[in-house]
């Protein structure tokens, strides 16, 4: 670098890939909420709205009934619909959106590998998604645990911190899966919807071994095992079948799935071309 250029521009100072990674991750947190924010907030508010409706419609519901409602919504609605929908909305197009808008080229010409960019964007987006999933769970808890005839936080009503941890875990695993679908397919949102309906809704509802192909089965196993079942339900067998997975099996399975999905995503982002020049030439 010549002396003249020193006059044109100041010294760049020390360059660090870690700083680059953190900058992209922090930027992703900010950008995530700019896209599909209204839809995400709407999905996030569904469980709390259900709680409000139940409270208004069944004004004389006992605390046990409120506990059962909270339990049912936490076990069946949150990991089956709310967390997967939020993850799908943001993660299927994690990289493709940037590519389509032409901004990916800025990130792919920085002091950060393609895998680094993907993981930074994933981390930033995940941070937001975990926040959204936890806020949804917290709102549901507040609706159920406050006001007239609040639920009793006893067996059958998973304590708040346990439920929050499971929702956060669900957000991590489902985000990794949807990110992988986004890397593998040209129209990932359609594939994502297909995955959601087939695996997380249809398979998860069939009380056979196919349940094990859904993420929410393992999340439900953890929730039910840590919180038990309310009095109105006969027990674990009634909910998840005869041989529901243990907490450790569920955690291990989810960890393996998330890691595998991230590895596949990282592999594909490292060898795929995303530039617009390709489309223009076509």
């Amino acid at each position: 670098m010549s002396t003249e250029q020193t006059v044109l521009l100041p010294e760049a100072g020390p360059i660090s890939p870690t700083r680059a990674w953190l900058a992209v991750a922090a930027f992703s947190v900010r950008q995530t909420m700019r896209k599909r924010a209204i839809l995400a907030f709407a999905v996030m508010a569904v469980p709390a709205l259900l709680g409000v409706i139940v409270r208004v419609a069944g004004a004389r519901l006992s605390p046990d009934h409120m506990s059962a409602f909270y339990w049912g919504t936490t076990v069946f609605v949150m990991p089956t619909a709310v967390v997967p929908l939020i993850a799908m909305l943001f993660c299927t197009t994690l990289i493709l959106n940037e590519a389509a808008e032409g901004t990916l080229v800025y990130l792919f010409t920085r002091r950060l590998s393609r895998r680094g960019v993907l993981l930074a964007k994933f981390a930033g987006t995940l941070f937001t998604l975990v926040g959204l999933a936890c806020v949804a769970q917290l709102l549901l808890f507040l609706v159920a645990a406050t006001g007239a005839r609040p639920m009793r936080v006893t067996s059958g009503a998973p304590e708040l911190w346990g439920a929050l941890a499971v929702m956060a875990l669900g957000a991590v695993v489902l985000s990794a899966i949807f990110t992988m679908l986004g890397m593998l397919f040209a129209r990932p949102l359609r594939i994502g919807v297909g995955y959601l309906i087939l695996c997380e809704w249809v398979f998860a509802s069939i009380p056979l071994n196919v349940q094990q192909f859904s993420v929410n089965y393992y999340l439900r196993c953890i929730l039910v095992r840590i919180a038990g079942t309310p009095k109105t339900w006969k027990g674990l067998r009634d909910v998840l079948g005869e041989d529901a997975a243990t907490v450790s099996t569920s955690l291990l399975t989810l960890a393996v799935v998330a890691l595998a999905a991230l590895l596949v995503s990282a592999f594909f982002v490292g060898c795929k071309e995303f530039t617009k020049a390709r489309e223009e030439q076509r």
Binding site: A12, G13, I15, T18, R19, A23, L107, R110, R111
Partner: peptide, 15 residues
């Protein structure tokens, strides 16, 4: 974009 190139916050602002 300067920070995404690995510069410090202050360095990126100056650049």
């Amino acid at each position: 974009l300067a920070r995404a190139n690995g510069m410090t916050r202050r360095g990126a602002l100056r650049a």
